[in-house]
Design a protein around this nucleic acid. Structure first.
Lengths: 202, 202
DNA sequence: ATTATAAGCTAACGATCGTTAGTTATAAAG
DNA sequence: CTTTATAACTAACGATCGTTAGCTTATAAT
């Protein structure tokens, strides 16, 4: 399985945009890395903007697959303890974010968020919104099943997820500088422990 | 009290950089808004890079003043309940972030974080590091004074502050689009309530 | 009153920007 | 074998980039 020129452009653009921002990267820089002349790029994308757009659209579709479908949720929730469910979810999330493409997407969204309305939409609606919405359902069911103490499920979702987002920001910067991330991963563990402690039935 | 040309350049650059990123703003765009010719800018700053650098340095100094000095801390902590202390701190923090300059600084740091090592340093060391360090001391003392249940104070600091950071991200995007922020402020209240609930002596 | 300094101006430098027109090579489809 | 489509190429377009040289003017110190 080989990689097409269009895909090369896509991934190299993602890499460069995520580091230097859309405006900080030239068509010539992209095509130099791809190994083609700048005019050839327009055989694959109609403009520089279209490259960015295709990256954002790809991320939206890709990210929507990371949350398990609601149909299988009841089954999953009854099989697992709260603890193992959260840990499993975290494991998924970490895998996604340790993935290089995932990291670059996350970075790109951050650096383009005030230039691109679509980036803002993705951050608020997809990343934040969909994740919290999902967790809200999860905690609602956990409460139904009397696996955790009753509490506003949306608040629980936020209390669990928002520290994770901040930790991801930290993680991403450390990773970018090639520094160790053990400290952040420890914080993540401690956060889950703290959270479990407060919601589990005594 | 009038505003100097140098200050005009500073604030207009901050405004533009925070929206479009450093690379997305030209000297001509800055000087057009300031109302001078582009060559005149170089009477005040030696290069475009120096403008950005001066903005970052200003933020570092300015932000360091937002945390109360440690000397006065014992006194403050004994006068206030945990609840009123956290609410007061939050009030300060909100005031700083509702301030237009504060918002733009925060945005600028985000959009430049992967282009500028200094931006990353400020985010990790100043914004995250200093804040958590301060709160760690606060919670240590609260535990000493038996105002809250004993728990790893660093974990408490993170549990309190990291959701606030994520809420700020949300707040900043909504504010940027001119949308209402009531929802986010409600989440902030709920977060404090949740947190207080879990740490206060029963 | 003279001088020095600061801060504005005009004009231009070479470099680079995104994009296009026109051409050529390759390979699949008829 | 010819046609067609895809994707590479060369060359160039006008626009804009950050920055500089050299000149003028207003302000303030000597």
């Amino acid at each position: 399985m080989t990689i097409s020129t269009k895909e090369k452009i896509f991934y190299i653009s993602l890499d460069l945009f995520s580091q230097k921002g859309f405006s900080g990267v030239s068509i010539r820089e992209i095509t130099r890395e791809v190994g083609i002349k700048e005019s050839s790029l327009y055989n694959h994308f109609s403009s520089k903007d279209e490259i960015l757009e295709s990256i954002f659209n790809f991320f939206r579709e890709d990210f929507s697959k990371t949350l398990p479908p609601l149909e299988t949720l009841n089954e999953i929730l009854q099989k697992h303890s709260v603890k193992s469910f959260l840990r499993a979810g975290l494991h998924n999330f970490k895998k996604y974010m340790e993935d290089e493409t995932g990291q670059k997407m996350w970075r790109l969204l951050q650096v383009e968020q005030f230039r691109s309305p679509l980036a803002r939409e993705i951050i608020l609606h997809d990343l934040y919104g969909k994740t919290i919405e999902f967790l809200e359902i999860v905690f609602t069911k956990f409460i139904e099943f009397k696996k955790i103490r009753p509490y506003n499920p949306k608040v629980l979702a936020i209390e669990y997820q928002y520290p994770v987002f901040s930790l991801l920001t930290e993680y991403n910067i450390l990773k970018f500088d090639g520094k160790g991330t053990a400290e952040v991963e420890k914080k993540l563990e401690q956060h889950i422990d703290f959270f479990l402690n407060t919601i589990l039935e005594k």
